[in-house]
Amino acid sequence: MSAFDLLLALALLLTAWRALASPELFRAVVLFIVFGLLMALAWARLAAPDIALAEAAIGAGLTGALLLDAVGHLRRGLRRKTPRRGP
């Protein structure tokens, strides 16, 4: 196990925690995407390129896009209720 792997594991735990604990939804989603990309890197380090590809494409990319979409919908809902509060 190299220093890189150790750093990767720490970064994974940190981004996972930050994504869950972040009060702001947009930041949480971005952290989730970062987590997915780091996870893909971890799978690649574990010599599982198939899972790495799937994680990067579906876990980080597509799920991230869907979550961003959902945050946008939620924000628009909020803005409709309180028109003065800008984005």
């Binding site: 947009f26 989603v29 971005v30 579906i58 597509l62 896009a65 869907l66 979550l67 961003l68 979409d69 959902a70 945050v71 946008g72 919908h73 924000r75 628009r76």
Partner: peptide, 19 residues
């Protein structure tokens, strides 16, 4: 199908959710 999850429906935002 995967694109449909994003594009289908009565209204989908163009500017990206977080922009």
């Amino acid at each position: 199908i995967l694109a449909g999850l994003f594009l289908a429906g009565p209204e989908a935002p163009r500017g990206g959710g977080g922009a």
